[in-house]
Nucleic acid binder design. Structure first.
Lengths: 172, 172
DNA sequence: GGCCACTTCTGCGAAATCCGCAATCCACGC
DNA sequence: GCGTGGATTGCGGATTTCGCAGAAGTGGCC
């Protein structure tokens, strides 16, 4: 774990965040390095991160807080739901007509829905569902998702086994 | 944030983990409560967690360490890859013949593959791919995934917009 | 250039947290 | 009853977090 960034910090590296046209903050190399550190260990002390990225402890703390406030990242515990008591999971592909985004928003509001993404291809939306049991899953898919206005059809893929789950973007 | 668990801790709650038949550790109510706390904030101090679940700081620390060692959970920073410089993501549905699990294992080994799950339904495997650009994505899907022995066909769903991403199982 | 407003970074002391360890408690089997 | 093993507690000392004031860099403006 050596210091990755020792270059003379100047100009473009100094603005840690700046709004770009689509509203998502622009991240500089140092912030990316900080995120990378926290992707390896979400509890790594600020001083250790600072040593790795070439910043003081206080500066790292300030940047991390900002990244959290901006919603760029979140530091959380992640698990395999199957080991935590949720026995049924499924990915649901949805075909929609009309205002697809409002359907996606409706899905976002459901607590059983973990993940919603709008896609190109033979589905318009993919949504991941986490449920306690089969009845619960059936209920969510048939009664609640299919009932949404604009949903034309759905196709479900029940999870049999989770093989990989990583959060190491940039750590390649 | 009140103390959720003040019941007289005894018998079944005391064994924080025990192997069940499928190899996944069995979690008791206290460990679930700890995980839940860390799903809200991965950096929450052990003492605060202890107060919430009714355990001493040292006990929480020991349990968390064990959960991490066992691989039941990981505490990490998660981001929306699009804001971190990965412009193309896709979910790939795979139809396979023969040893499906070995295909899943091969996918697991690819750094661009974030998520692999074996499913029931019209796909045998779903895999999430995170790439820098279109060329990279095309390369992974056509050259590497389709080249795996046993892969009969694939269908890709390119991500247009990530709408939701949560890690709040049990926090309902 | 000079000045001001704004943001980011640094240094540092106080408070809180983390860490390791020995002692204690409890369920269980003999 | 007694020993064994796992889980929990209590408690110092080392480390980390926190808040803040001052310094440094940036960009706009005259």
């Amino acid at each position: 774990m050596h210091s990755v960034l020792v270059a003379s910090r100047s100009a473009d590296q100094r603005d840690s965040s700046r709004e770009s046209r689509n509203g998502t903050p622009q991240l500089d190399a140092v912030s990316l390095a900080i995120i990378q550190q926290l992707q390896e260990d979400g509890r790594r002390p600020y001083a250790a991160i600072g040593k790795a990225v070439g910043l003081s402890e206080a500066a790292v703390r300030q940047r991390v807080q900002k990244l959290l406030d901006q919603g760029v990242m979140q530091i959380v515990a992640v698990t395999d739901p199957l080991t935590v008591g949720f026995r049924r999971q499924a990915m649901v592909g949805i075909n929609a007509e009309g205002d697809v985004e409002s359907i996606a928003d409706a899905l976002t509001g459901m607590s059983e829905v973990e993940y919603v993404v709008m896609t190109a291809g033979s589905f318009d939306i993919l949504a991941e569902i986490v449920c306690e049991d089969d009845d619960h899953l059936l209920d969510v898919i048939n009664k609640r998702i299919r009932a949404l206005p604009g949903v034309r059809s759905t196709e479900s893929f029940v999870y049999l086994k989770l093989k990989k789950q990583t959060y190491m973007w940039g750590t390649r």
